[in-house]
Amino acid sequence: MEFCPKCGAIMFPKDDTFQCKCGHKKEITKDLANKYEVSEKVDTKDNIIFTGDDVRTLPTTRSECPKCKNMEAFWWLQQTRRADESETRFLRCTACKHTWREYD
């Protein structure tokens, strides 16, 4: 796998370059081509699903973004402290993607 040095996303081969969703391209040289080997062929009847940042899988809540004042945010819980303490609630603005946390 090649990762984009600009944004860190996975770059996919297209024509004679690796291309990233941010627009960065890297030419596939002979040395780079020898580094990769196809280990599995995809049959034409198989479905491959690519998803982008527009897929909304997290639940949302009404919460004001401290950066842009938008009133909707995705949220999730994560254990960031000891197990006997409550989880940390993370929120990400649906408009500007700013992420912040709330504690109980």
Rank of each mutant, 00 (worst) to 15 (best):
M1T: 15
E2S: 05
C4Q: 11
C4F: 10
C4T: 13
P5L: 11
P5T: 13
C7F: 00
A9K: 12
I10T: 08
I10K: 08
M11E: 08
M11L: 05
M11I: 11
F12K: 12
K14H: 12
K14C: 06
D15V: 07
D16R: 06
T17I: 02
F18R: 04
F18G: 01
F18I: 09
K21A: 11
C22N: 03
G23R: 09
H24I: 03
H24N: 12
E27C: 01
E27Y: 00
I28H: 00
I28D: 05
I28N: 04
I28V: 12
T29R: 05
T29N: 06
T29S: 15
D31P: 00
D31M: 02
L32T: 05
N34W: 02
K35W: 01
V38G: 06
S39Y: 13
V42P: 01
V42C: 03
D46L: 01
N47R: 10
N47E: 09
N47W: 05
T51W: 00
D54N: 13
R56Q: 13
T57F: 07
P59W: 03
P59I: 12
E64P: 00
C65F: 02
P66Q: 04
P66W: 00
C68S: 04
E72L: 13
F74V: 06
T80A: 13
T80C: 12
A83K: 14
D84R: 07
E85I: 03
S86K: 14
S86A: 14
E87M: 12
L91N: 10
A95S: 12
C96Q: 03
C96T: 06
C96V: 04
K97S: 14
H98E: 15
W100L: 05
R101G: 05
D104K: 06
